[in-house]
Amino acid sequence: MGRRARREEFEDQALVHLDRVFHLALRLTGNRTEAEDLAQETYLRAFTHFDQFDPGTNCRAWLFAILRNAFLNRLKRQGREVPGLDEGELERLGSGMADGSAPLESPEEELLKRVVGTELVAALDRLPMIFREAVVLADVEECSYKEMAQICGVPLGTVMSRLSRGRRLLRRALETLVREREEARRVR
């Protein structure tokens, strides 16, 4: 393949996913400028390793995996804490609410009906990274569990538990936001 043909092939296969790549970058970084940089870095890395991409597989999942790694490397380079390594902390976050043995929660009926779109984004952005990415991949990007396992490099069981914890944390964050908004209005 000539060099030009290789780039065209890459653009055809990979650049069509730019909207999704940018959106995942935005949810991971929480910052528009950083998300743009991260998306660009992802595409440059992917282009460099395009030979390793198996054309029969899912290009979007491949890009997401590269994006995630690029993001984690950035955190390391900046000396920021890399999430997901301290399983003990995750246990604490998830404790008493994730697994079948946990007591039943009783979320307020109808509360979800009063959520507005911006609150969904704000609530999600409050979640720790590994839970946030699980919810974004499953419910916003509609990835399968198998794709998520590939993207995050974890076994399927971990995908399941992160996702169910993530959804519970999201529900809790949404409830808090809606209550805060409604109380603020009452005070006024």
Partner: peptide
């Protein structure tokens, strides 16, 4: 799950 799937704003690049 339905709420996130239908109402989450998906921003394009």
């Amino acid at each position: 799950r339905g709420l996130v799937r239908t109402r989450f704003p998906r921003e394009g690049a």
